[in-house]
Amino acid sequence: MKNKENASNSLGALLNKSDTIIAIILTLIIAFLWFETTKFEKVPDLFSNNIPPEMFPQILLIIILGMVLIIPFEHIFLKKSGKNIDSSRKNPVEISTIGTMIILTAIIASSQILGAALTIIAVSISLPLYWGERRLKVLISYVVGFPLFVIVLFNVILGVHFEPGLLDLIKN
């Protein structure tokens, strides 16, 4: 029993927990991509010059897999050279970062309905407000001034096509 515990302890010291999870995720992705390569359309050898389209991606996947399998043990080598791979991930992802990710995803998801101008305004309002900007004068001048500057620069001067979105509906 004690031997078993020691064995699991030494294995625990060998493997870095976060890196093991990363290695498992990457291995699953590699397995999925390998499976995808087997579904590539088959081409006659003459046509493909004996280099089928799946050959190069498969070589890459094998090399990447070989490297991925070392990742859980890499912390041992890094420690020897004075590097700590866990330093940048010792704290959990901040709530403000997760919130930012959600807000931006939601804005992009609704951008086709909103149209370009309203999307720009939405970003200009939501991010500073969410990040705690409460100076009203600063906020108002930013929300009015910055989108106006962007629209004039890109749409009017540089001719980038901006989808009208909701504004078009309102106009009609």
């Binding site: 370009a116 999307t119 970003v123 900007e133 890109f154 980038v160």
Partner: peptide, 18 residues
């Protein structure tokens, strides 16, 4: 930063889209 980074994101969106 609370004003700078939203601006960077807007430029990023326009750059990727255009």
């Amino acid at each position: 930063k609370k004003l700078l980074w939203p601006a960077v994101f807007i430029f990023s969106m326009i750059g990727s889209y255009s």
